[in-house]
Design a protein around this nucleic acid. Structure first.
Lengths: 304, 304
DNA sequence: GTTTATAATAAGGTTATACTTATAATAAAC
DNA sequence: GTTTATTATAAGTATAACCTTATTATAAAC
């Protein structure tokens, strides 16, 4: 087991470069005996002579040449490491691990793209999962941040809202209610609603809304993706309630219409969430700030 | 300027591997506070936290992950280095820098081949030059060993003879003296001799011999290569005196004949030479021993 | 020979390193 | 709540790391 020190390697490199103990001592602001000692210790450590002494000149031995190569390589690694760590400090580089719930997938990539555009060198790992999985990833500390609708009441979680999440009623373009304005909520009582699985934030918001208005609605097909609901609504199987963000495309192309029901859109909020006490990386922190300050504005702009 | 130690990296690696200070302490046969300290120092050095502490669990930070990569790379370098140095020690590997005078080129490669065959992993750099250049390389410490005929009287040089170097008189096969035996030296007085340049070891040995026998010979063409002399002798331009080793091929194929002159062959010796006080590498030393102990025998064998 | 340049060696001292033990703090598990 | 598992902190210590100055040894240059 050899116990060499980085100091020894550093001194050795200097001597090997100058082929002189005295020059090395000058360079390192040491006395010559100090250099002699370091080299001696290094030679003792590896049990091989590193220099040959012929007259006043010294030469590298075969072992010395070999060691020099490795020593240089290690120095390079250390230098690279220093740069890498400095970059991390300065946020010139870094990795953002983030998970978003499925519905957020309709706008999160857009925001991430903007963020990456601003902070070159930041790499992002985006995971899209259902609410349950996202929460597990949070508690397992697998991710820095999460974006979701309703934050859990769990005390181990910090969350903050950063953008409105308007829930709208969508219908196929040929639906009779599409022509009407200020549709009373009561009118929805006759309609069939396609709903997300229970436990979904959208689903519970919807149920709370109708409960508040004392309305019983028909629940049609129950699916676990918003995508399926959009398809089903287009096919005329019923109405849907969903985050307006998730339906931008279909609304724009006219495949779906928003019904102007009184009390809608239900304004909920997107939240950025992290495990409590988690020390956010500078990148994660920057993204969190970015969301809080600019997400709403950016999403608004992109609509126009 | 960051002053981290290999110890810190080693401890860090262990903690990163176990994701536990206590497990790392066990592995390293330390107490847990000792580990805490090393990590703390490391974190102070790089001014970045390496671990996150969430509850009783710890996790690597981004910086920690980054550092781990570099740390592992450095450890690998060190391990590789250790192996390389061990190989050097054990002569499993190594480089032999050797120069030989031109005339030795007729047998030196053969010996080197045998040597390399025995010590796999040894690489050889063989340089063939005239005596003067070889000596310069020796004093400049560019080579480990040299092979030459007459070693210089220089006190800075260690030399030892390892093999006979018989100088013979060669003639073209149709030369009248070829049929005779025990030719008296006097008979050569009428012959023309093709000679090497003055300063050559062969040339001076020849001159000493004829001077001792008080014979004046005719000197024909003077060249700086033995090869040219062999060609000239075959062409009938005169006789030659040269190391028998350099003419093996021509003798075997009958293109040249050895004249059985009294007092011949003149026995001189091949010497292995190194700069005084030079600490020979294990490979160089092994080759030197190899020459002293086995070269003569091997050359003898190869003749048959 | 003397001078000059270089490295080795010896002696000594300060500091920092790398631990230890003991105890406190924290959070998870029960 | 109590217990258990973990890390942090504090205080103390032996030692080795690292350097200095002073001197010696060596060989090259003059």
């Amino acid at each position: 087991m050899l116990h060499l020190t980085l100091r020894q390697l550093k001194v050795f490199e200097s001597v090997a470069r100058h082929l002189s103990y005295s020059r090395a001592a000058d360079e390192l602001h040491l006395t010559q005996p100090a250099v002699s000692m370091q080299i001696k210790q290094l030679e003792d450590n590896i049990s091989l002579p590193l220099f040959e002494h012929l007259g006043k000149r010294i030469y590298l031995t075969e072992a010395g040449r070999e060691l020099y190569q490795y020593s240089r390589a290690i120095s390079q690694q250390l230098a690279d490491m220093e740069v890498a760590l400095d970059e991390l400090k300065g946020m010139e580089r870094g990795k953002l691990n983030i998970s978003v719930v499925t519905t957020a997938n309709y706008f999160a990539p857009h925001l991430l793209a903007k963020f990456c555009q601003r902070f070159r060198g930041v790499t992002v790992s985006l995971n899209v999962s259902n609410r349950e999985t996202v929460l597990k990833q949070l508690t397992d500390n697998l991710i820095d941040l999460a974006i979701m609708g309703q934050p859990p009441e769990n005390l181990d979680i910090d969350s903050e809202s950063f953008m409105e999440n308007p829930l709208v009623v969508v219908a196929p373009p040929n639906h009779p209610l599409c022509q009407e304005h200020n549709i009373p909520v009561k009118r929805l009582a006759n309609e069939t609603f396609l709903v997300r699985e229970s436990g979904s934030g959208t689903r519970s918001a919807m149920e709370r809304f109708f409960a508040a208005h004392k309305i019983n609605i028909n629940k049609g097909m129950e699916t676990d993706t918003t995508e399926a609901i959009k398809q089903a609504v287009q096919a005329g199987m019923g109405l849907g309630i969903m985050s307006q963000h998730t339906a931008e495309l279909e609304l724009e192309t006219g495949r779906l219409k928003i019904l102007e029901v009184q009390g809608f859109p239900i304004i909920r909020y997107w939240h950025v969430v992290n495990r409590k006490n988690k020390r956010l990386s500078s990148v994660a922190n920057a993204f969190r700030e970015f969301l809080l300050k600019e997400a709403a504005k950016l999403m608004d702009e992109s609509k126009n």
